[in-house]
């Protein structure tokens, strides 16, 4: 590719006429408005004072804007409990999932053992099983193990779901670490396991962080499993709590909006920061070994 020239679909695009450029910008601005407006509207509803909660006004900053909804949400609802429950469950599931995935991915990366190809393929296939299908058997298992309404039950249910995905990400990363590094450790008399924990694991912190982040987001944003497994209000994770808030639309719309803003802003920031890896991870079907 020539330096200085950016690639484009149609060569003519490089010399776009001003009229065409204006049209392109207009279309993109319209698309941006459509993509962002619903969230701006959530922000706007969250600022409504309680006497105007149900208004037909479309102004983005409502007349008499106040933070009353945020106050009510934090001090009169279980909002902090929901966030805490989500945090506990997601963090636990990430730690359990990574414990399982880190070593398994290493085995897939370094040894050509019989069944390796089938194993990797099988991991991809498990991702095709709709989550809803395993919901009933897992629910019954959790009830029988007396783990219903507990952090432990939720964390276990979430952790394994993300193990196959984490194994794929970690394996891809281990593949890029030269074997010579471990061999040097082996020459120095370390056992293969010591070489793994002392050499490979410290080098793969970025991959562990990414795999952990994605499993965290899966658990953090899940509604379906939480809806089934958690019946006690003091165990609700935020998606279940938010849904209960929205059920009281006429009285709690503003609080729901405030809660959404508080949860969405960190999520947006994190997503924009990590989206580069997210895309490559999700299309891993096309990744060559």
């Amino acid at each position: 590719m020539r330096t200085g020239s950016r690639r484009s679909v149609f060569r003519r695009a490089r010399g776009d006429s001003p009229a065409k450029r204006a049209v392109i910008h207009a279309v993109l601005i319209l698309a941006c408005v459509m993509s962002v407006y619903p969230f701006l509207r959530v922000v706007s509803v969250s600022l409504r004072p309680s006497n105007q909660l149900l208004s037909t006004d479309l102004a983005l900053i409502p007349p008499g804007a106040s933070l009353e909804n945020y106050r009510a949400l934090i001090f009169e609802r279980d909002f902090t409990i929901w966030l805490w429950n989500s945090l506990v469950v997601s963090a636990a599931s990430v730690l359990v999932g990574l414990m399982l995935a880190a070593t398994a991915a290493y085995a897939f990366s370094r040894w050509k053992f019989p069944g390796r190809r089938q194993g990797l393929l099988f991991l991809l296939t498990t991702q095709m099983i709709p989550a809803g299908m395993l919901l009933l058997p897992i629910y019954i298992m959790v009830v029988r193990l007396k783990l219903f309404n507990t952090y432990t039950g939720m964390a276990i249910a979430y952790s394994v779901g993300s193990v196959p995905f984490s194994i794929w990400i970690l394996k891809g990363y281990y593949d890029t670490i030269p074997r010579e590094l471990e061999e040097a450790a082996l020459v120095d008399g370390a056992s293969p396991l010591v070489a793994f924990y002392r050499v490979v694991i410290p080098l793969s912190t970025p991959a562990l962080a990414i795999a952990g982040l994605f499993s965290f987001m899966t658990a953090w944003n899940d509604y379906m499993m939480a809806r089934v497994m958690l019946q006690k209000p003091n165990m609700f994770t935020w998606p279940v709590g938010f849904q209960k808030l929205m059920d009281q639309f006429q009285t709690a719309w503003g609080q729901f909006a405030a809660a959404s803003v508080l949860v969405a802003i960190p999520a947006l920031a994190l997503f924009l920061y990590s989206s580069k890896w997210l895309v490559s991870g999700m299309t891993l079907g096309g990744v060559k070994e």
Binding site: P38, F39, V42, W220, Y223, S260, V263, A264, A267, L268
Partner: peptide
């Protein structure tokens, strides 16, 4: 955006 939030909104 978290899907639960967008859907409920």
């Amino acid at each position: 955006l978290p899907q639960v939030i967008s859907a409920l909104a």
